[in-house]
Design a protein around this nucleic acid. Sequence first.
DNA 1: ACTATCTTTGTAAATATTTTAAATTTATAT
DNA 2: ATATAAATTTAAAATATTTACAAAGATAGT
Lengths: 135, 135
Amino acid sequence: MLESHQYLRRFLIKPSVQRSAVMHFMLNNRTHPTIDEIYMALSPTMPTLSKTTVYNTLDLFVEKGAVRALAIDEKNARFDVDISAHGHFMCKSCGKVHDIFDLKPSMFQIPYTDKFKIDSVEVSYFGTCNFCQGN
Amino acid sequence: MLESHQYLRRFLIKPSVQRSAVMHFMLNNRTHPTIDEIYMALSPTMPTLSKTTVYNTLDLFVEKGAVRALAIDEKNARFDVDISAHGHFMCKSCGKVHDIFDLKPSMFQIPYTDKFKIDSVEVSYFGTCNFCQGN
DNA sequence: ACTATCTTTGTAAATATTTTAAATTTATAT
DNA sequence: ATATAAATTTAAAATATTTACAAAGATAGT
């Protein structure tokens, strides 16, 4: 919990009880959770927590660059504390999102274009995970 | 309209009036429209059209491989009739989605992994378009 | 302790999507 | 043609997700 406190400061985020709790969860559950998953995980030990706070908190984290919002899941917003360049895989059957680390750095280069000012890239893969494949 | 008819058949989709109208719109408005945009565009000339039909139709098109669903927009599902390998850019300010065609083919290769059965890739870029940049 | 600012909360509203069941249309077999 | 079955469309209701907002609470600086 102390760690999350320091961690937030590094991103110039004022650490409140709620923010530290959310960040603590993110740092220890690297499952690209949805708002609802975070809320469900924390509310038992933090009964007054509001879902709006979770929304606000994640918006702030994204704005400050502490987490990345993923555009891989059409249904829900998902978040990743690992802000290093890496890709994601989403299983169309179970909906779980996994990291894909072993991609070439060139995959994350910003292509040249004079039409837009590009400032981020997302590389997403879709298919079926081994578990859902009955494997 | 005839064209959309033939086009649907190529993907083994039985062409109904509604399906042809939706496909006709997709083929002539390559703006990666949302369900609502499609519905709003067609309902004036097709007053009985139901939004549920638009949902059903797009689901079918995706299933049959006639269009691709994009996960680039967290707010709404977006669809692309261009099923060739290309990337997308979304302006964080106006929300419009544009094609990025001049990417290396290697960007769309399926990486090797024994953890998942990957069957599609999505390469998405985010930033600000020239119009929103006041340029 | 006082005040201004920031944060959290709960409710309600807005938006998006899915489900369901009935109605309509289309296809098939007699 | 007509009856029947199958497929498609529709509207309404149910769910789910996200945002807006205003009140309450906490924090920091003077």
